[in-house]
């Protein structure tokens, strides 16, 4: 297929995935911001949302230091700001522009999801949303990515177009999970002797919520929420679709499918495999001992590098 088509599919999936992640970040921030401080709520939940969304620079340029973050300016910046290249609105805009350029590589169902989301997006007010409007908006964003994934899964031919789209989704998903961990890792570190106080619980639960995994946690571990189990679920547990290991499982498989179809393995496949090995050959205890923060930083670096290798190998 055309390199440009593959590139568009790859970024289309990344942007839909990104919009979904941003919606969940806002969701969690909103929830925590009106939880009493003694229950883990905090006044700087909105600045932490800016950090997690990975848009500090743009935010600072527009609204000043991250400490200035308020619900109003963060929601408007992350959800709607045309100046923020990664706002939800821009993600949908870019997704649709990409989709238009590769109409022929999409099924009509996939196009329909993207095009109608783009049309519906205009019905939402740009600023000063009520809480209720915001909830409705975030639900709409999440639903769009669900529908897009569903349409992709149900209607696309299983060929390189499908695999490139999956590669994009999983690179982005891994990046998002890793960034949530990067910003929040400190609450997972056992600083105090006693764990399990209400404050910690709400912090950990919020991490799980940001990847839609609170219910899943209980099913997987049948235990109360403990920080190392939260880390295990998000990093190593392959049952959990947003864990780093599950993302790399999928990534590696899609890249191998591409390599098999083209009859050639390359640096992207090798790099994905080596990252997957790091996620397979360690226990969460070993990761904590060697340093959770270093592990996550390394992962973010590797994942970024993989993105570049994919571009280099196939998309230019």
């Amino acid at each position: 297929m055309l390199s440009r088509t593959a590139d568009n599919l790859y970024w289309l999936s990344r942007y839909v995935e990104r919009a979904d992640c941003l919606a969940r970040i806002l969701d969690v921030a909103q929830r925590l911001s009106h939880t009493p401080v003694t229950y883990g709520g905090s006044t700087n939940e909105w600045s932490s949302a800016v950090l997690t969304a990975g848009c500090v620079e743009g935010f600072v340029a527009r609204h000043g230091p991250v400490e200035n973050a308020t619900e109003e300016n963060v929601v408007s910046f992350i959800a709607f700001d045309p100046e923020n290249p990664s706002s939800i609105r821009n993600s949908f805009e870019v997704a649709r522009t990409n989709a238009r350029s590769v109409r022929t590589a999409l099924t009509s169902e996939m196009w329909d999801v993207i095009n109608s989301a783009w049309i519906e997006l205009r019905a939402f007010p740009d600023k000063a949303m009520t809480r209720e409007e915001l909830s409705r908006f975030l639900a709409f964003v999440k639903e769009t990515s669900l529908r897009f994934d569903g349409a992709t899964f149900r209607t696309m031919l299983r060929n390189d177009a499908y695999w490139f789209s999956r590669v994009g989704a999983h690179v982005e998903r891994a990046d998002n999970t890793a960034r949530i961990l990067d910003v929040k890792y400190h609450v997972l570190l056992p600083e105090k002797e006693h764990v399990g106080g209400p404050l910690d619980y709400f912090q950990w639960a919020s991490i799980l919520r940001s990847v839609s995994a609170l219910t899943a946690f209980h099913w997987v571990y049948r235990d109360s929420v403990k920080p190392w189990l939260v880390a295990d679920l998000l990093i190593l547990n392959r049952q959990m679709p947003r864990s780093l290991a599950a993302c790399y499982d999928n990534l590696s498989r899609s890249l191998d499918d591409i390599a098999a179809a083209y009859g050639r393995q390359g640096p992207a496949q090798r790099l994905a495999r080596s990252t997957l090995a790091k996620l397979s050959n360690q226990s969460i205890d070993e990761i904590f001992q060697a340093g959770l923060h270093e592990f996550i930083s390394d992962f973010i670096g590797d994942n970024y590098k993989l993105g570049n290798e994919i571009v280099e190998q196939y998309l230019t």
Partner: peptide, 26 residues
């Protein structure tokens, strides 16, 4: 392009070498 089942290309997808036109593919 969709109905014909052929690639929809832009100028930047193509290049010419020895007077032959190629498209850049994966």
């Amino acid at each position: 392009a969709d109905k014909l089942g052929v690639d929809l290309v832009e100028g930047r997808d193509l290049f010419v070498e020895d007077n032959v036109v190629y498209m850049r593919t994966t």
